[in-house]
């Protein structure tokens, strides 16, 4: 555990700010660059950094691979249900305007975008983590490790 002390200390220090940066990108999607996809990747990158410093096992103990499919489904359902909600309220699929038709500030657009982007973010985060677990969590006994 001593060999990578510097790396671990800095990862501990930077973990929370990276997560916050991911969420910042998530929620400022309609004011600046960013959005759900990028936010999901940044959010996952914090956990990947944690896994690089502390090991896959430790990460999987804290963020079990078994919960990731639920996140994925939740994200996708959030996306789809927001779209279907527009359909039910009398608009088209993913028609945000009908969510709050009387608003002067396009509140419907904002709410719809936020929900959809949040769904995308959660789905991308869990997909990224799943991919990372599958790639990096291979047993080292599989011997083609040096291709």
């Amino acid at each position: 555990m001593m060999g990578h002390l510097i790396l671990r200390v800095v990862i501990k220090l930077l973990f929370a700010p990276i997560l916050l940066f991911g969420l910042y990108v998530q929620f400022h999607g309609d004011y600046g660059p960013g959005g759900g996809f990028q936010a999901g990747v940044i959010f996952a990158s914090a956990f990947i950094l944690f896994a690089l410093g502390f090991g896959i096992k430790e990460t999987q103990k804290r963020l079990p691979p078994t919960v990731l499919p639920f996140f994925m489904v939740f994200g996708l359902l959030l996306y789809a249900l927001t779209g279907v909600l527009g359909l039910f309220m009398g608009g088209n699929f993913l028609d945000y305007y009908v969510l709050a038709p009387d608003s002067h500030h396009n509140a419907g657009q904002h709410i719809g975008i936020l929900l959809v982007e949040f769904g995308v973010g959660v789905a991308v985060f869990s997909a990224m983590m799943t991919i990372f677990y599958f790639f990096a969590g291979r047993e080292p006994e599989i011997h083609d490790a040096d291709w």
Partner: peptide, 20 residues
């Protein structure tokens, strides 16, 4: 930062697992 650490870990230690 992440890319550098990941590349090193992959090529330098040949694995991503804990007790490198």
């Amino acid at each position: 930062f992440i890319a550098t650490i990941a590349i090193l870990k992959f090529f330098g230690y040949r694995t991503m697992s804990p007790q490198m």
